[in-house]
Simulated scan of single mutants.
Amino acid sequence: MSDEKRRGAGGRGGSGAGRSRSRAAQIHAVSSSVQRLAVLLEAGVPPARAWRYLAEGSQDHAHRGFARMSGSVEAGGSAATIEFAAQNGVVRRVAGAVGDGAPIDEAIAAAANVCSAHSRQAWMLVAAAWRVATESGAPLAQCLRDFSKTLVEVGDVQRTVEVALAAPIATARMMTLLPVVGLAFGAVLGFDTVHTLFATVPGVICLVAGTVLLCVSSRWNALLVRAAQPRHVSSGLSLDLMAVAMSGGASLSRARQIAERAVHAANIVSPTERRRLDDVLDLAERAGVPAAELLRAEGAQARREALTASQTRAAALAVRLMLPLGLCVLPAFMLLGVAPLLISVVTSTFTSL
């Protein structure tokens, strides 16, 4: 599959629920690659060589698991397996670019452009962390290890939200099948509801109106589900990037300059987190304590708050999905399931007279 097709598949990816299910897998797959890099760097492997080793290992894994992954795709199977294979492609592109002399952070950002949305966000954050650690002089291996744990937290937030959304989404899908069930029920009772629906003027009117209502319901449901999902994977990560910059021993102004450049490059600028950052730095200065740990704790708190907000939206979704059900699906059920049955009964009654 070409890069363009893979990116299109990851970005569009079927139903909204299908995209939702893959988000945690995308982020956890990136975290796994970052964790391996951290281990290699801690063992004394130079960064460029660490990427090359990681790429060689991912290529071997791809060859061994190709048949298994293909079977998973055909069966609609393991999202984690598919996403891990996608991340292997990113690693190989980074290793190739670094081998050609490109800066590692720029190579990561460039390779991320062919990923699906949430993988791209996660890799852009890794590029930002790498840039901040390199420019500030922070220990790269430890920074990557900490950042890998942060990505795991973000992935867990996504997975929790996916579980909370699963029930209302499944209910909405099942209710959309009501008109088809009603149509089949009429046919089982012995009435020619299909002929009535497609071959009579009242039936065609019911068919058109019912189909329009189902299309409106499907679009409405998709919009409600999209509004209930987290829009970004970056909650609290600008605070973590500042913590990385501070751990390198740079002055406050220098660390903030480095972190802000990385935040803008990763497109995770947030006025709310900027205010939290100012509050934490002010507290650390007044108390005379290191700011890095306070920043990490504040970043974790921001992710917990994002999880709570997402769970609240997921709980409200179950109620909001009743609107398209009542205004679109049930009328469509009457038009496509009940009305043809009544028309058939009336027609057969008058014919028999």
Results as ranks from 00 to 15, higher is better:
A245G: 13
S247L: 04
A265G: 11
G249K: 03
A259Y: 02
M246N: 02
A259K: 05
R275I: 13
R286Q: 12
L295V: 07
N221Q: 13
A297K: 10
E298Q: 15
D240V: 15
G236A: 05
A287Y: 00
S235Y: 15
S234D: 13
L252D: 11
S251D: 15
L277H: 05
R303D: 00
A228M: 02
A243D: 06
A243I: 05
Q229F: 00
H264P: 00
S238D: 14
G236E: 03
A302F: 07
V233F: 01
A291S: 15
E260L: 10
S270V: 13
H232W: 08
V263Q: 07
G248C: 11
R226W: 04
E285H: 07
A266K: 00
D279H: 08
A259C: 03
L252R: 15
I268H: 04
A259L: 05
R303T: 05
A300S: 11
A302S: 15
V289H: 01
L223N: 08
A262M: 08
A297C: 01
A266T: 02
V289C: 02
N267D: 15
D240S: 14
V263M: 06
E285M: 06
V244D: 03
A291Y: 09
A302C: 12
S251L: 14
A243G: 08
L283F: 03
A222L: 07
R286W: 02
N267V: 12
R256G: 15
N221H: 10
Q229N: 01
L237V: 15
S238G: 13
A227I: 09
A292Y: 06
R286H: 07
A222D: 15
A259D: 04
P230F: 06
R275Q: 14
G248Y: 10
E273I: 10
E285W: 02
A259N: 08
A255D: 10
V289T: 08
Q257G: 10
Q301D: 11
G288L: 07
P230Y: 03
G248I: 13
V280W: 01
N221S: 11
D278M: 04
R286T: 11
V233K: 01
G288I: 10
R254V: 14
L277P: 06
I258D: 07
A266H: 00
L237T: 14
Q229L: 05
L224A: 10
S247W: 01
A227W: 11
R303V: 09
H264D: 14
N267H: 13
S251Q: 12
A266Q: 01
V263G: 04
D282V: 04
A262N: 05
I258R: 07
P271F: 09
I258M: 15
Q229I: 00
